[in-house]
Computed example of a mutant assay.
Amino acid sequence: MRTVRTLTAALLAATAALAVAGTASADTPSASPSPSPSPSPSASGEGGPAPTEAGTSFRTAAAFRPGQQATAAASTGDYLYWVLPIDARQRVTVKAKVTLPEASARHGASTWRLDVYDGLRRRQACTYGTQTVAAAANAVAADLSCTLRTVRANAEPWANDPLPGSYYVRLTVIGAPEEDLGLPVRAAVEAEVKEAGGAHAVDGALAAPLVPATVTSALREPENGWAGGWWSDRWIWTAAGGVLGAAAGLFGYSLTRGSGRPHRVPPGA
């Protein structure tokens, strides 16, 4: 039993060392040619100021980072485009707010829509959120949101899974009185990213993120580089399972060995 306790303690110590090393690796940014700072919750952010105007197409999309708030002045009927980087094992929620013209200048209700596309310009479905909003004729603003599925490190060629790279945000009105087209509006867009953890980790990764050349110069990579490093909390669960399995095996061996010893007959019996 002393041997069992010694081996178990050694296995537990090795697991703790692995967890500490993994945490240190996860906290250390991976080396990359152009490391980028952490996203800032402020409107300007640390990776450069947030854009104050939007693009009018995929090719001219204005780049911003999660944690920043991108703004734009536009006209009712314009198509507004932004682009941001999203990495593997991240779940992004995009929020948009449209400040509408004065009610006295409008002639009826309007309907606004928020769409998100990946680097291949495939529209990604929202798992939840208010993607389309109908604003009443006297409404002050329209609030929209879209939460995407967790981004995967890779996928089958036939799948439509979200992959790491650039993600385009498109905001526009899809229904309004013809007389209201051209009225001035203000739009604000921001993105919140949550790490999904090792539950969504897979064995494999894209050779390169889906970042078209047209936005490479403006779009900066995530904090830890693309793919976010090799570490995930799956390593902790794997090591813990190995330790428990080894301990159970040693305990069972000790019981089997003890039951196989011959019983001594006391003298004079």
Results as ranks from 00 to 15, higher is better:
4 V>N: 10
34 S>E: 11
236 I>Q: 08
167 Y>W: 07
85 P>M: 01
96 A>M: 08
60 T>R: 04
87 D>Q: 03
231 W>Y: 07
184 P>D: 00
87 D>F: 03
161 D>P: 08
117 Y>V: 07
129 G>L: 00
170 R>H: 15
257 R>G: 15
224 N>F: 11
18 L>R: 03
68 Q>S: 10
257 R>D: 15
91 R>H: 09
179 E>F: 14
17 A>N: 13
144 L>Y: 04
249 G>R: 05
210 L>W: 11
171 L>H: 02
136 A>N: 12
259 S>G: 10
144 L>F: 02
55 G>V: 06
84 L>V: 11
177 P>S: 07
118 D>K: 00
169 V>L: 01
175 G>H: 05
14 A>S: 04
244 L>T: 12
31 A>N: 02
37 P>G: 11
10 A>L: 08
203 D>W: 13
142 A>C: 05
216 T>Q: 15
146 C>S: 13
117 Y>T: 10
28 T>F: 06
143 D>M: 03
49 P>K: 08
269 A>R: 05
265 V>C: 02
161 D>C: 07
207 A>D: 13
122 R>V: 13
213 A>H: 05
48 G>V: 07
265 V>F: 01
120 L>S: 14
16 A>S: 06
249 G>A: 15
234 R>F: 11
92 V>F: 04
268 G>M: 09
30 S>P: 10
147 T>R: 01
188 A>C: 12
141 A>I: 08
96 A>T: 07
211 V>H: 03
109 A>M: 03
230 W>M: 09
38 S>K: 14
264 R>P: 06
87 D>T: 06
121 R>C: 06
1 M>Y: 12
96 A>F: 05
170 R>N: 13
61 A>T: 06
5 R>D: 15
219 L>E: 04
230 W>E: 11
12 L>A: 12
125 A>T: 11
114 L>V: 01
67 G>C: 06
40 S>D: 15
100 L>E: 10
175 G>V: 03
222 P>A: 00
235 W>M: 14
108 G>E: 05
200 H>M: 13
259 S>E: 13
137 A>G: 05
233 D>I: 08
102 E>D: 14
175 G>Q: 03
127 T>W: 03
179 E>L: 14
44 S>V: 13
72 A>K: 06
134 A>D: 10
110 S>T: 11
106 R>G: 06
46 E>C: 10
122 R>I: 09
119 G>N: 00
238 T>F: 15
80 L>H: 13
104 S>M: 01
32 S>D: 14
79 Y>I: 02
74 A>M: 04
140 V>L: 12
115 D>Q: 08
145 S>R: 05
113 R>E: 14
46 E>Y: 09
133 V>K: 14
